[in-house]
């Protein structure tokens, strides 16, 4: 994805047209990233909203050139995810509020949720440990390069590669065991 210099400059200056382009470019990837992390479409929608709010605050402080944008966006998304987990572990949200939230936010594409394969995949991805799942999602779902993933998760390239290798093996094992059970 070619992200030009003018676009990033527009983001830094707070131009609304640049932010409109940012939303168009990243809303689906961010939604998928959040959704794959916990499987809750309503929460993924809320986290996308939080993430865009955070991006408006933090993008003017982004260092580096236009090629840093994708890793930066996913690094902010990761922070949103972590913040949410901390909040949830403190509050222990009741089920009633979750159902109200689902009423507010319609479910995403029904075909995705109903597909058995996708459900299996969701479950398998969620069963990975958090760092492995994170690099796996960025590399294989969002198709970031290894260097971009490393930058996004602030880890060395070697660590990212070993996590990917481990994640791939683990996911295959999980999917095989699931298909064996079914």
């Amino acid at each position: 994805m070619a992200v030009d210099y003018e676009f990033v400059r527009g983001l830094r200056k707070g131009e609304s047209a640049a932010y409109e382009a940012l939303v168009c470019r990243f809303e689906a990837p961010l939604f998928r990233y959040f959704l794959a992390s916990h499987g809750d479409p309503q929460l993924a929608g809320e986290q996308s909203v939080d993430c865009f709010g955070d991006l408006v605050e933090s993008l003017p402080k982004m260092t580096g050139g236009a090629q840093q944008l994708r890793p930066f966006v996913f690094a902010v998304a990761r922070n949103v995810l972590r913040r949410q987990w901390r909040r949830r572990s403190r509050e222990c949200e009741p089920l009633a509020s979750a159902s109200q939230a689902i009423d507010r936010w319609p479910a995403p594409d029904a075909a995705v949720e109903s597909a058995e394969d996708n459900a299996r995949l969701f479950k398998a991805i969620r069963s990975l440990d958090e760092p492995t799942r994170n690099v796996f999602l960025l590399r294989f779902i969002e198709q970031l390069s290894i260097a971009e993933v490393a930058e996004s998760v602030a880890e060395p390239i070697g660590t990212v590669k070993s996590r990917l290798h481990r994640g791939r093996q683990r996911l295959q094992e999980i999917l095989q065991s699931m298909s064996g059970l079914s």
Partner: peptide, 24 residues
Amino acid sequence: LLAQFRAVDLPKEMRTANREAVRR
């Protein structure tokens, strides 16, 4: 499987909410 997951899209209401969040 991953390719199917990559095709996941979000509903219009969420798109509107994202734009509203950025505007605010």
